[in-house]
Amino acid sequence: MFAFCDPRTVEGLAWFACYLTTGKHIAFYWSFGTVLLLLAVTAPLALAFGFAGAVAARARFLPLRLLGRTYTAMVRGVPDIVFFLFFVIALDQAIEWSLHQIRCPDWTEPIRTGLEFRVCPQAKVPPSAAPQGVHQLYGFALAVFTYALVFGAFAANVLHGAMRAVPRAQTETAEAYGMSAAQVFRRILVPQMWIYALPGLGNLWMILIKATPLLFLLGVQDIVYWARELGGMKTQAFDYPHPDWRLWYFLALLVFYLLFTKLSEIVIARITRRLSRGQATMAGEDLRRAAA
């Protein structure tokens, strides 16, 4: 990084300046971006899954309703970590298996021999010749999908509850205006439910943040992976040998998470205030009084 960085000669502060800017540390700093990106992509996707789940759980069509209910109940009963341990491999194989059926209809060799899973080369995702970046992106996408699926089940719970919490009088009024069921859903129920869903969704966001250290289980090189890797004792085989420093690296992660959750709390409080305006809730009433 710096011109004066020769691992054999630098000492003291300069040593640290050089040590903290090695390629490995830069990768560590980028991995914070990975975590933030995961959160940014997963949150809306999980919300979409949750919305679909909640709508399915309310459906009049019985099989659809059962599907929605099972989805929310099943994922809630199983610890997320257990789910992560086998789901990603399963998902990966499912994708390749489907592609295999489409692209190689006349492939004769068996896909499964013993424990081995082998599809034709055209069905490999991503193709094995693809650059490493593509593989990492694919791994990241699988992780996002898995997180979204798990947290979508939680979100479905929250949204389902929120839809039930919208005062009946509001939907009744809409019906009296002659709106169809779909119109009531689109114009009244969905816009009005957010204030009831917000406390739950806010909590869910916090849970999601605190679940990100499990990302390394899904094969993504995240901050926990790098903290372990960098903190571990380094012998003379490395440019910057040092004893076991994992405690300090993990303390840094702790501070990162504390700051991040605190910041989230503040932002959520702001949004709640914003959404409460004009609502038939206690908070909305308080805002009205304060303004009057």
């Binding site: 080369p121 490999k124 193709p127 010749a129 890797e229 085989a237």
Partner: peptide, 22 residues
């Protein structure tokens, strides 16, 4: 994608742990 498939035999992905010096 197909081209990638054809090349596949020649690119070998080497899996390692990366945590066991030397």
């Amino acid at each position: 994608l197909l081209a990638g498939g054809a090349l596949a035999q020649d690119v070998v992905r080497m899996g390692t742990e990366g945590a066991y010096p030397p």
